[in-house]
């Protein structure tokens, strides 16, 4: 016979287990991009000739985490093409951080209208290509506009499967043998950022950001970026990097004068990215991303 105490403890454990289960099932669908709704028929922005730019440099302070060696022995084709493959999370050169996605999150134009009120912007977005080359993705981070075609190519002598794992858009998983024709994929909802992976080669990772407007860029090797054709106004600019447990983003308010340039330099560091640091650094504004896979 179970004693009274034993029954009490058993009951408590069962209760805690059930509560925990319930809490995990009611997973929050919160998304802090504030830009993830379906494309709605909004206003069309007409260029006025006084648009400007937002540019800047993303730097990394502190000891740069070392890239990790990837074991590609599960597929000989990968080993022969990329014998020294390493992780691409930390692309830092001379203190400058590449592969950071910078975008306008929200903003008010000179006429007091909001960026999010517009659904059409001048100019056609350029071609977006995601290549599987050497059993890793090129580019590692990319941005597209909603419903922009992404051309997916396979330059490897092996089969890949390309798997988009979004939260707001539908999952998409396609096989692409070597030599197969390019695939095309479009994402209908804005989402920052959609992880892309290959289930055959689990080290392969890429991120695709989907935006309703064209004001985004990915930092180059020298950490620089430029957002072009930005109407005069005041904007919230965000820099997102995959580092840290769930990705890290930094926010900055930037004003763009008529036909002028706004400046937005961001700095990431070991403490901010969840890396060991001897200093306790508390960034002014920082949001852990919820939507990284």
């Amino acid at each position: 016979m179970l004693s009274k105490h034993a029954r009490l403890w058993l009951g408590l454990i069962a209760l805690v287990s059930l509560l925990s289960l319930a809490s995990s099932c009611s997973k929050s669908s919160e998304d802090d991009t504030g830009d993830n709704g379906p494309t709605e028929a909004g206003k069309a922005y007409t260029a006025k000739g006084n648009e400007g730019t937002i540019s800047g440099v993303v730097t990394y302070n502190g000891a740069v985490p070392e890239s990790k060696k990837i074991d590609t022995s599960a597929d000989a084709a990968c080993t022969s093409k990329s014998p020294n493959l390493t992780t691409e999370e930390w692309a830092v050169k001379d203190g400058k951080l590449a592969n950071t996605y910078v975008y306008i999150k929200e903003g008010t134009l000179a006429d007091n209208s909001k960026v999010s009120a517009y659904s059409t912007w001048p100019g056609t977005p350029g071609a977006a290509t995601l290549d599987q080359n050497g059993c890793h993705y090129k580019p590692h981070v990319m941005g597209v506009m909603v419903n922009q075609a992404i051309t997916i190519t396979n330059s490897d002598p092996t089969t890949h499967n390309i798997h988009f794992t979004p939260k707001s858009n539908p999952d998409w998983n396609q096989s692409q043998p070597n030599g197969a024709a390019p695939l095309t994929h479009k994402l209908a909802r804005a989402e920052i950022l959609v992880p892309v992976k290959c289930n055959q080669h689990p080290w392969m990772k890429s991120y695709v950001a989907v935006s309703k407007h064209p004001f985004f860029a990915v930092t180059a090797e020298d950490g620089s970026f430029t957002l072009k054709g930005v109407p005069p106004g005041k904007y919230t600019v965000v820099a997102w990097h995959e580092g840290g447990a769930t990705g890290t983003e930094k926010t900055m308010e930037v004003t763009v004068p008529a036909s002028g340039a706004g400046k937005a330099d961001f700095s990431f560091g070991a403490a901010a990215m969840g890396q060991p640091s001897s200093l306790t650094v508390v960034p002014a504004i920082e949001f852990p991303m919820l939507n990284k896979h």
Binding site: L10, S17, L18, S20, L21, S24, T246
Partner: peptide, 28 residues
């Protein structure tokens, strides 16, 4: 959660609670 994601805390706690329950019931 896949290998590159963190395990959901609530479910993890439920599984730990389950382990304690199994240990007690099966042990008894």
């Amino acid at each position: 959660a896949t290998w590159d994601e963190e395990l959901p805390f609530g479910l993890l706690l439920a599984h730990i609670g389950g382990a304690i329950t199994v240990a007690l019931v099966l042990g008894f």
